[in-house]
Amino acid sequence: MSDDPSVVQFPWPTVARQREGVAFGMWTFLGSEILFFGGLLLTYAVYRTLYPQAFNSGSAATDIFYGTINTALLLTSSFIMTMALRGSESGSRGVVAACMLTTAAFGLAFLAVKGLEYAEDIDKHLVPGPHFPLHPPARLFFAFYWVATGVHAIHLLVGILVAVFLGIRVALRQMAPESTAIEAASLYWHFVDSVWIVLYALIYLPGRSGA
């Protein structure tokens, strides 16, 4: 990895410096994202503290099957993303393109499953509204459910678009496989994955033991 003119960008002096800068900039942005989701988790924490039973009954009404499948999908996609980054480090165009597009495919699968789950939720009137089947504070739980999974899905969609865009550009030789954008995209992808892990634990798992 020399100072390849197709990788180094203005105003960076060297590729190494640029790589460092891109990783640091991305982490700074992720710090911001952590707080974005942190604000949402705060509403969960406060209301869960105030209404533990209602939150358990809300959780029990979600579909753990879909949730678990989706978690597995995302974990796998993250693993494939690490291979894309490895390909980028060794400069192999084919590996980067293939892994980026596969990662995106797993993301799409996640969204498809999520769509099925949403359809069922709407069918069961789990959107807070006139026919909502649970006690009022469980409405707070489902408000969280819709906002959190919705915001996460939008993040994932952005990740998918970026992965497809980069994968195609690398495949078409419009972009060097060593591009620092690959690392930035992978950091973002893993982050979105880790948000889901926390949401999974908060949304799907509590209140299932019938206690």
């Binding site: 209301y47 105030l50 959107v127 807070p128 409405r139 707070l140 969280f144 819709w146 906002v147």
Partner: peptide, 16 residues
């Protein structure tokens, strides 16, 4: 979307 996050009628807390 009518998602009650701060709605006191559903137990939400506007102070949050």
């Amino acid at each position: 979307f009518g998602l009650p996050v701060f709605n006191p009628n559903d137990g939400g807390d506007p102070i949050l």
